[in-house]
């Protein structure tokens, strides 16, 4: 019993981190209908930046994330204005291809700067644990998960409670209706990209002390974050939380009770099952037809 609880706790913690890593992806998709294939590359780039702050300035990854976030946000704006928006004006599909190209370029750039050696940050909590009874909670996972909850809640607050958030909802549901009240969907798109890419700073910071990474780790992470988003329902923030937790728990159960080798296959098996039963994912966005009057 204790072993099961231990496994579930571990799965939930890591699931929270998966959700954090995937929020940017779901936000960009929900509002702009672009699958950002560079999400994994942004995560890895953020992880490397956190890593450099840690190795050269001794800055804790959880604090470093707040330095990396505005840098990533700015990079997001530049790439959106310079590449994505232009590609999207030509063809929506081209924008997705452009993000894929961007992933490859970012991977090459990180390889040039940081080299092929595996990197990881090792703040003193990375291998400690807190004990509750017989259950051990690894501090690294715990902190990363708390981080995930705070950042995701912050994003949910922005979406639900602020002018910007309501403008985002308006522009994504009904772009022409939004323009009529003075919300410019293009300007909202810039904000969305800035926010989404900035959130990879937090996911990347967690990644930096939970895992070892190399430049081409990005393709593994795009696979995982896409799985979370598809599981949860494309575009939905509660969806990534659900998708992340389901995936985290399923992986933990598999590696503990089946075998570690199988745990990497779990996301894909889960997706097959969910998409067969519920093609729209666990949480579907309400469709545009709802607004017709």
């Amino acid at each position: 019993m204790a072993a099961l609880i231990q496994t579930l706790v571990f799965g939930l913690l890591i699931g929270g981190v998966y959700a954090l890593m995937s929020t940017g992806l779901t936000l960009v998709f929900g509002v702009m209908k672009i699958v950002n294939m560079a999400q994994g590359a942004f995560l890895i780039l953020s992880a490397y930046l956190t890593y450099s702050l840690w190795t050269y300035a001794g800055i804790d990854p959880l604090i470093g994330a707040f330095i990396v976030a505005p840098v990533m946000g700015l990079l997001g704006v530049i790439l959106y204005k310079g590449i994505i928006e232009r590609a999207q004006r030509i063809d929506a599909g081209l924008a997705i291809v452009a993000t894929f190209a961007l992933a490859l370029i970012l991977e090459a750039v990180t390889a040039l700067i940081w080299g092929p050696e595996p990197a990881t940050t090792t703040p003193d909590y990375f291998n400690q644990a807190v004990h509750i009874g017989s259950i051990a909670i690894p501090k690294a996972q715990l902190y990363a998960c708390i981080f995930a909850v705070v950042i995701t809640a912050g994003l949910a607050f922005i979406i639900k409670r602020t002018w910007l958030g309501h403008a985002i909802t308006a522009a994504s549901e009904n772009p022409e209706g939004a323009r009529l009240i003075g919300v410019e969907p293009a300007r909202v798109g810039t904000w969305i990209f800035a926010i989404s890419i900035a959130t990879t700073a937090f996911g990347g910071a967690a990644l930096s002390f939970l895992y070892q990474f190399v430049p081409d780790s990005q393709d593994g992470w795009i696979g995982l974050t896409l799985s979370v988003v598809i599981l949860g329902g494309l575009g939905s923030i509660p969806g990534v939380v659900a998708g992340g937790l389901v995936l985290g728990v399923a992986e933990a159960l598999t590696s503990n009770y089946v075998s570690v080798q199988w745990s990497t296959a779990v996301p894909f098996i889960l997706i097959l099952v969910v998409l067969t039963v519920r093609p729209q994912g666990l949480f579907a966005l309400h469709s545009r037809e709802d607004v017709s009057s």
């Binding site: 309501h166 909802t169 308006a170 549901e173 009904n174 022409e176 209706g177 939004a178 009529l180 966005l285 309400h286 545009r288 709802d290 607004v291 017709s292 009057s293």
Partner: peptide, 11 residues
């Protein structure tokens, strides 16, 4: 006030 689709269903 547009002919159709004036509101935002999610709000």
């Amino acid at each position: 006030v547009p002919q159709r689709h004036g509101l935002f269903a999610g709000l």
